[in-house]
């Protein structure tokens, strides 16, 4: 329904898609706590692409009962998804950490704020994250 390109390494513009999604959700009158959940998760997913991948896309789909956010990238992939899900685990470079990102809360935050989180990843190829938010 809405698609945004994400540029790896472009921290400057990270979060712009969240802004557009937010306006849309406000306009159709979704409850604020719900909007907040979607925004936090979408922003984290977008940041993961910016911090780890070359490029990617974020898809936003609005259905009657749910929102689906799909973030795909052509990045390094996640070798150990279980470990990556742990709070504080991060493979972000020191540069990224110096910018205040990469605290290892990305995936935990995405899991906490979505109803279902599916991660399809292949090392060396990329990652696809599908998050579902039920109304």
């Amino acid at each position: 329904m809405m698609e945004f390109d994400i540029q790896g390494g472009d921290f400057l513009n990270a979060g712009e898609s969240s802004g557009v999604i937010k306006e849309y959700m406000k306009r159709i009158g979704l409850p604020h706590p719900f909007i907040r959940r979607v925004l936090i998760a979408a922003y984290e997913a977008e940041l993961n692409v910016v911090a780890h991948a070359q490029k990617g896309t974020l898809h936003f789909t609005m259905e009657e009962q749910r929102v689906i956010i799909t973030v795909k990238d052509t990045g390094p992939g996640i070798p150990d998804v279980e470990r990556a899900m742990q709070k504080g685990f991060s493979t972000a470079s020191s540069e990224v950490r110096e910018m205040g990102f990469g605290a290892g809360m990305g995936l935990p935050n995405m899991k906490q704020n979505s109803d279902t989180l599916t991660i399809n990843t292949e090392v060396g190829k990329g990652t696809e994250v599908i998050m579902e938010f039920m109304l």
């Binding site: 306009r27 609005m62 009657e64």
Partner: peptide, 15 residues
């Protein structure tokens, strides 16, 4: 100020 649209289906269509 904008009345919350409870009919989500219609709100999506309108949008």
């Amino acid at each position: 100020r904008i009345p919350q649209k409870h009919d989500l289906k219609r709100a999506i269509q309108t949008q």
